[in-house]
Design a protein around this nucleic acid. Structure first.
Lengths: 336, 336
DNA sequence: CGGCGCGATTAAATCGTTCCAATGCGCCTT
DNA sequence: AAGGCGCATTGGAACGATTTAATCGCGCCG
C-alpha cells in the first residue's frame, strides 16, 4: 500500500468507501459521529484524495486556467493577482500559463487545459485561437477573454477601453505641442497594439496637424523599446519625432534608457508616454507619464464574470465589461 | 456522445482502442499505415484525450508545480521563466502558484499538487512546510527547493549565496564610508532575510566599526519599503542611518521614493543598496546599486536538477547548487 | 402490533484510458 | 512441411474515486 486510499480509510473507520466519499463531498449526508471517525482515520493515514480518479468519475475539474501574454510584465501579474483573489475566495485553484506572446506556447497551454477538462479559461489571446476557444466551449469549458473583445462577440469579455487610452495619450502629447509622434510597439497583429495605434492616428487626424510614425516591434519589453528608439534616432534629423507613445511601460522604459544613453533630452527633445502605469513607471529616472489601467480590477472582474458563466453556461447572453483608463501625467511629458 | 473518446476514434479507424492508445503513447509500436489512419480519425473527430483517465490508469502526471514567494516581484518571474524554458523543452507543463508570502496559500497549493500527484514540485518555502514536503516525496513527487537550502539537507536545492550577497553589499557600504546601516526587510523568519541580515552584521563586526539597524517589515514590496524608510526618518537625528541595505529591490525602490519625498538626498545623506538587480533597478530615478542574482539561471538550474531527480528519485544523493551573486554599483551608493 | 417512512449506510456499476498477456499472421529456418 | 519467431494488433482487467439505487435500523403512527 504505497499511499492510503479511500478503502483504507473506510476500513480503519469501520465504514464503507461510499461513506468516506460522502463525508468528503457531501458532509451533510453523514452523521456527525461517523464524520468524526472518518476524519480521524484520514488524519491518521494522511490520506490525500487522488484527483485524477475523482475527476474522471465526477466529470468535472474545478480548476481555472489562465493564459497571460507576458509574465514578466507587471501589468499582467497585477491582473493575475486580481484573478487569484476572487478564485481563492471561491476555493478554486488557478493554473497560470505564460504564452510569452508566442502562439506555439499559447496553443500548448490550450491543449493542456483541454485535456484537463478545466471548468474555465481566462485568456488574453496572441494567435488566432478563436476556433480552439469555440471547441473548448463546446466541450463544456467556459471562456472569458481578458483585455480583448472578440470581434464576433461570441465570448464574454472584460477589457479596458484601448481606443480611449490611445486617444487621451495622443491628445495629451498634442496638447503639449508635440507634432511628430513615434508609436512603438508590436506585433501589429496584437489587438491592443492595433487599437491604440488606430486611436492615436484618429486623434492626430481630428487635431488636424501632426503625424504618427509607427515602429513595429516583435515583442513588448524594454529591449524592444531600446531597439525602437534606435530606429527613430536613425531617421534624418527632420523626420525625427518630438514625442514617443510606447504601447506599454516596459517599452517606454526601454525607450527612455536608449534616448538618455544617446544624449537625447527627455522630455525637452523627445517626450515619452507609456501605457499601463505599472508601479515602476513612477520611480523611473524620469518619472513616466502613462495611461493607467486598473489591472487588478480587470482581473477580479474577469474572474467574477467567468464564475458567473460557469454557474450558468447556457444562461442569458454574452457580456462585455469595459473599464476606463486614466491619464497620468509625470515628468516625461512635462511642458517645455 | 458529447465528446469523442478513444473508442470512437478506434471505430472510425477500424482498429481497437488499445491500438489508438499505442498510437498516441508508443507510436513505434504501431505500423505507419495504421498510424496514419488513426491520425486522420483523430483529426476528423477532434479527439482530445481525457487527461484524468490517462493519469488515473498511467499513475503519473507529467506536470510540474512551482510555488513562488511573490509573483509581483520581477525576480521571481525571471526565475519562473528560467524554469519554463527548461520544462517546455522537456514537454512538461508548468503549473505556477503564488504564495504571496502567505503560509495559508502555500499550503493550499501544496494540497493541490498532492492531490494531482504531480511528478515534481519546485518551491521557495514561506511557512514551515518540511513535513508536507517529506510526505510529498514519500508519495513519489520529487521536490527541489529554490533559493533556499534545507537545514537538514534532505532535499536537493538550488540557491544563490545569500551570505556572500549580504557581505558584499555591506562591505561596499562600509567602503563608501557609511557606518550606520539600516537593514529593511522581513519577515525575519524568511531564510533569505535571516541570512542576508546575519551576513551584514558579520561584515560590520569584522570591519570593527559600524552598526546595523534592523527594521522588520511584513512583506517585501515597495509599500513595505516606504514604511521602513518612514521608520528610519522618525529616529532621532543622531540615530539616523547614513545608508540603507534593502532586502530586495522592490523594498529599495520604496525606500528611495519615501526618502526623496521627505527631502533626503540620495546618496549624499543616505545611500541605498538593493538586492536582486531586477531590470527596473537600473532605470530608477536614482539608479540603484544592487546585488545581482542570476534569476533565470537559478530557475533553469532548478528545473534541470528537478528533472534529474524525477528521472532517478532514489538515485545518488541530495545535491545543492549554489550560484554566486555579484555587486552592481550605480548612483544610489556613489561616493560623496 | 404491524407497517411506513426517514435518515444513514452500503454494494456495485461506472468514468475513459492504459497496460498486460495473448492472439493472429506471415516468413524464415531446419 | 512443421515449428518457431517477431511484429502488429487486440480483449479485457485495472486504475481509485463517485454515484445510484438498494438496504438497513429504528421510531412513530394508526
Amino acid at each position: 500500500m504505497a499511499v492510503a486510499q479511500v478503502r483504507d480509510v473506510a476500513a480503519l473507520a469501520g465504514v464503507s468507501p461510499a461513506t468516506v466519499s460522502n463525508a468528503l463531498n457531501h458532509p451533510a449526508k453523514v452523521s456527525p459521529a461517523t464524520l468524526a471517525r472518518i476524519q480521524a482515520a484520514i488524519d491518521e493515514l494522511g490520506y490525500i484524495r487522488n484527483d485524477a480518479a475523482r475527476q474522471l468519475r465526477a466529470g468535472t475539474n474545478r480548476a481555472i486556467g489562465m493564459i497571460v501574454l507576458d509574465i514578466a510584465n507587471p501589468f499582467f501579474t497585477d491582473v493575475a493577482r486580481g484573478v487569484e483573489d476572487v478564485l481563492i475566495a471561491d476555493g478554486r485553484p488557478l493554473i497560470l500559463g505564460n504564452s510569452a506572446q508566442e502562439p506555439t506556447r499559447e496553443t500548448s497551454y490550450l491543449d493542456l487545459f483541454e485535456q484537463q477538462r478545466m471548468s474555465g479559461v481566462l485568456i488574453t489571446p496572441v494567435g488566432d485561437v478563436m476556433d480552439r476557444l469555440r471547441r473548448l466551449r463546446d466541450r463544456g469549458t467556459s471562456v472569458v477573454l481578458v483585455d480583448r473583445m472578440s470581434r464576433a462577440k461570441e465570448f464574454s469579455s472584460v477589457s479596458i477601453d484601448d481606443k480611449m487610452g490611445g486617444r487621451i495619450a495622443t491628445e495629451h502629447l498634442l496638447d503639449m505641442g508635440r507634432r511628430r509622434i513615434g508609436f512603438i510597439g508590436g506585433p501589429a497583429s496584437l489587438a491592443q497594439v492595433k487599437t491604440r495605434l488606430a486611436a492615436a492616428r484618429a486623434a492626430v487626424d481630428k487635431h488636424g496637424s501632426g503625424e504618427i510614425v509607427f515602429v513595429e516591434t516583435e515583442t513588448m519589453n524594454a529591449q524592444a523599446g531600446r531597439w525602437g528608439a534606435e530606429q527613430l534616432l536613425e531617421l534624418p534629423r527632420e523626420e525625427r519625432p518630438d514625442a514617443v507613445f510606447a504601447a506599454n511601460d516596459l517599452v517606454a522604459l526601454g525607450v527612455l534608457q536608449a534616448l538618455t544613453l544617446a544624449g537625447v533630452r527627455v522630455p525637452d527633445d523627445i517626450a515619452i508616454i507609456g501605457y499601463d502605469d505599472i508601479e515602476f513607471a513612477a520611480s523611473a529616472a524620469i518619472p513616466l507619464s502613462s495611461v493607467r489601467q486598473p489591472a487588478q480590477q480587470l482581473g477580479s472582474a474577469a474572474a467574477t464574470l467567468l464564475l458567473d458563466v460557469i454557474a450558468d453556461p447556457a444562461g442569458s447572453k454574452v457580456k462585455h465589461t469595459t473599464l476606463k483608463p486614466e491619464l497620468v501625467i509625470r515628468r516625461s511629458t512635462a511642458g517645455a
